[in-house]
Design a protein around this nucleic acid. Structure first.
Lengths: 225, 225
DNA sequence: TCAGGCTGTAACTAAATAGTTACCTGATGG
DNA sequence: CCATCAGGTAACTATTTAGTTACAGCCTGA
């Protein structure tokens, strides 16, 4: 087919420089792509992230990205899943049941706040995913069972507190968690518009410390008998 | 000019259908573009929004969009500014100083929650703008002075409450507002991932009512003496 | 009444971008 | 020691997209 003309038919002519240092380390390449993608998606969202940029940040090229992850959407989902695995894994090492109920709740509040503070990319990814109404997360099979542990342990601590007469009867585990997460998430994820409109640098260390104490105070005040 | 050659020189050949209904209503067109842009930016973020889609949603075309707003970024900023003007304008009609301090704070919390509930596009736009670290908002001259009224009135109510012995001395107006906004914003903006991972429909009416009461309760509990 | 500017349409263009293909190379097992 | 194949490169393509341009109807004031 196409062109019986003998020799001049190559569509592409190009040669690589021979003295190239090849890495040949699939695990490393895969991990580099995942890390680069996490940053790119966190900084630009799903719509704004560029596949070329991810490949470049990872020090590789698009061929490998598509090779390991299929396409942009699957890569994004993998990034999101890893982010959730990260926080839930760290949470399991907490063991909030080992102390008094008040201390346990305070621990969880501190942990959550500090995790958010250390992992801004996690907050960003949540924001992006919610913009898209959890379109990709809902497809994820892996994640559904990851979260029951947290609520279960929290319920136990609350129950103990109620029996000891220190917590009010209406204290609900999901509500308590949502309260803690709300106060941390909003302060950090919206820090840029808030700092702008209120003319106060919210991430200045003194303000961060104050808000950390505020979160613990509000959480406990809202369930104390 | 162009084309001495008589006939063959036109680059483009096309004629409009003559029986077109022209609107010729600049105010309406401008408003339609702004409304369409608000939806498009809220649904897709800055990176994901499409100028063509905005023009189509507005029932007009890109020519008018560029004509009235310059480019995509200026249109986005205008959308964001209007969103802020919307909530701050509604807030001014509240007059939280007309009641007891507790009622005043409760009013503000209810108002904020219900405004967020009615205006999901406002939450979305905030999320997008924060993803980009307030890149456009910081350029806005109009908005800086819009927000002091809120904090001022809130400070007054808190002061009255402290003098009456019902509020704690450490209650701070910005913190109180951030607490109210946190609890409303996070619950709604993150409803999709939260409902997915916790397997509970957060916007089911009963849950919405419960959270509304929760916000008021938490806010007041955190500042009650 | 008509010149000029404003409102509007749709085709056009240059650049960006997701995804593919042709090709190259080092490692390894038989 | 060499055939094979996974790991890797970079050019390529089809499509999308922001932004522009050629053109035309409508209105107003001189």
């Amino acid at each position: 087919m196409e062109g019986a003309g003998g020799s001049g038919e190559k569509k592409r002519v190009r040669r690589q420089s021979p003295e190239r240092v090849l890495q040949r380390d699939p695990e490393r390449t895969r991990a580099a792509i995942l890390e680069a993608a996490t940053k790119e998606f966190a900084e630009n969202g799903m719509g704004g992230a560029r596949v070329d940029a991810i490949a470049e940040r990872a020090g590789t090229n698009k061929r490998m990205l598509y090779h390991y992850f299929g396409d942009k959407e699957q890569l994004y989902l993998k990034v999101l899943e890893e982010a959730y695995v990260g926080i839930r894994t760290a949470e399991r090492e907490l063991n909030i049941g080992d102390r008094t109920p008040q201390e346990g709740i305070g621990e969880l509040a501190l942990f959550t706040w500090r995790y958010f503070l250390k992992h801004p990319e996690f907050l960003s990814l949540l924001g992006t995913e919610n913009l898209h109404r959890a379109r990709w997360l809902r497809q994820s099979v892996r994640l559904k069972e990851l979260h029951s542990h947290l609520i279960g342990e929290l319920a136990e601590v609350l129950e103990r507190g109620k029996k000891a007469g220190v917590f009010i009867a209406s204290a609900d585990p999901l509500n308590v968690y949502l309260t803690i997460a709300s106060l941390g998430y909003f302060y950090l994820s919206n820090q840029y518009t808030l700092s702008t409109i209120f003319g106060r640098d919210l991430v200045e260390p003194g303000n961060l410390d104050a808000w950390e104490r505020h979160i613990v105070h509000v959480t406990l005040a809202s369930i104390t008998a």
